[in-house]
Each structure stands twice: as C-alpha cells, then as structure tokens.
C-alpha cells in the first residue's frame, strides 16, 4: 500500500489532536492555559487543527504573575484577537490583594504562587480540565506524569497514586471539585516544539530570538535587568546578545547567550545544546533536586 511518510511531527501532532478532542468530548468544562510562551503557542495551533472550522469548545486562560515580559503580554493579546477566541485573565495581584498570596518582597519570584491563583480560578469557573503545554522532557518529575494527570480537591498531584494510562484510551472521569490537567504535548521535546514552530510558520514573541539586553551574572545564570532585578553589591550590568528559551517570571527566567536570530538558527542551536531547557533558564528549579515535584504536589501546572 502506498501512503505518505508519517514523520515524528505528524505522529506527535495527530496524538495531540486526538487528546484535545477527547477532552472536548468527555470533560464538562475544560479550559486551555495560554501564557504566550512557545509551548502554549503550539497548543493553540493544535486546537485550531482539532476544531476548525468550528470554534474552540473551551476558553483560553492566562494566570498572570504581572511579572511577565511586556512583549509576551502584547503577543498574547494579539494572538487571541487573531483567533477570535475568548481569553480569561486571572491575575496574581488579585490573590495578593485578597491576602491569598503573601510575598516577602515585591521582587520575589512569583512562579510558585501561580498555583494559588490557578486553583482559585479553577474553583471560580468550576473547570474540570485544564489543558497545558507541559512536556515530559522538561524535568524528571514530569517524566512520570500522565497525559491526563488527575488532581484531588486540593489541586494536588500524588505521584504514587496515578491512574494507569494504557494505549490511548484516556480516563477523563472526575468527581465534583476534582480536576484533570491534560498535557497534549507530553511526548514532545524542546526540539520537536521548535521544528513544529518552523513547519507551521508560527509567530512567537520577539524575546525568543537573539537580542541585545542588559543582564547581570548571578549564581549559575544570567538575569535580565528590569524593575524587578537590579544589580546587588559587586554585580555589574553587562550588555550581551541573548535569547530566552522559556518565558516566565521576569525575576527568575534567565536568558542564554545566543546569536540565533530566527527559528532555523534556534533549531540548530537546540539540536546541539548540552544543557536542559529548565537547567539553563529557571533559577527556581535549581533550589533543590525536587523543586518541580514539590511545586506540582502543591497544585502547580
């Protein structure tokens, strides 16, 4: 029989479309988490492939730390507008104002506290499934997480008590108050994401490409200078060509030195890189060997 070559990107794409349609059909009130980052940009394209010419059978939601890069927020709003879909934004400022989140300082990293705002938003809208862009290659706690990852009433993940996931038959059932996090691109690597962005000619925020930026060297990484990050005694500001491999909280997302100014150059660099995505770019994942696992147990994405 004659059929076209089904590449690994075709296989990953078809798997993700299948997952999204299962969520739409079986979950009562799903939502897709969209941050403006590259992984969730890929999710939006997959949702278009899964549901067009229809509308998305779920709204989009962004949990805004208000420590985001302005370029990313501008991109987020533009992309949502193009799609004509509905975006819900829930801000950590609200959680802080209500006393749900208490920060030690204004400039402290807000990544871990997103869980509070996320869980509040899930309760507010009674979402029973949150589609997210996490990948198993990102971190070793993720490597053991299911595609349909069950959370209890407290939003917690119990790694020792996960539902077995066989073939591609997904168990989407929840009791009221519980929810499921669904990761359609679980099996994608960072390189797959960039190859897909290239193949689909997807637009991504400017800060993913090499640009001149003021940074300071701290611990093992570079930190972008902003109103949240100022040089401490002994540190000096340098002007370097950098790009971001992830976009998150400005106070702890580190750029890497790079001259990759377009998607093809990023793919070449990613194929050769010797450091994992989170190892290079997230200071909050380096605080202990189990940082991500602990955050996930608390209800993190």
């Amino acid at each position: 029989m004659n059929h076209p070559i089904f590449t690994h990107l075709d296989a990953l794409e078809s798997e993700a479309i299948h997952i999204m349609r299962e969520v739409a059909a079986e979950c009562g009130n799903p939502v897709l988490l969209f941050s403006g980052g590259k992984d969730s940009i890929v999710l939006l394209r997959l949702a278009e492939k899964a549901f067009r010419p229809g509308r998305f059978p779920f709204p989009l939601m962004h949990i805004d730390t208000e420590h985001n890069f302005p370029e990313v927020i501008a991109f987020r709003d533009r992309r949502v507008n193009e799609l004509g879909e509905r975006l819900i934004v829930r801000s950590m400022e609200d959680s802080i104002r209500k006393g749900r989140v208490v920060l030690r300082s204004e400039t402290q990293s807000r990544n871990a506290f997103q869980s509070v705002t996320l869980l509040d938003a899930i309760a507010e809208f009674s979402f029973d499934a949150c589609i997210g862009g996490a990948r198993r290659d990102e971190e070793k706690a993720r490597a053991k997480e299911r595609i349909f990852s069950f959370r209890d009433e407290f939003g917690q993940w119990d790694p020792k008590n996960q539902r077995p996931e066989l073939w591609d038959i997904y168990n989407t059932r929840t009791h009221p108050g519980e929810n499921i996090r669904v990761f359609p691109i679980s099996n994608w690597t960072e390189l797959d994401v960039w190859e897909y962005i290239a193949r689909e000619r997807l637009e991504v925020p400017e800060i993913y490409f090499a640009h001149n930026r003021e940074v300071i060297r701290r611990a093992t990484g570079l930190l972008p200078v902003s109103h949240l990050v100022q040089p401490q005694a002994g540190e000096k500001i340098e002007q370097l060509m950098v790009r971001f491999r992830t976009v998150g909280d400005m106070s702890c997302t580190c750029p890497v030195e790079s001259h990759a100014a377009n998607v093809d150059a990023i793919i070449a660099e990613t194929a050769m890189t010797r450091i994992t995505e989170r190892g290079a770019t997230r200071m909050d994942d380096q605080t202990s060997e189990a940082s991500m696992e602990l955050r996930k147990k608390e209800g993190y994405f």
Binding site: I5, T7, H8, E195, R199, I267, A268, A271
Partner: peptide
C-alpha cells in the same frame, strides 16, 4: 541532518 530529522519516524 536537520532536514532528515524533521522527516524521521517515531
């Protein structure tokens, strides 16, 4: 090599 990778199977 990259071109061939983008066309590789899983």
């Amino acid at each position: 090599e990259r071109t061939s990778l983008a066309q590789s199977e899983l």
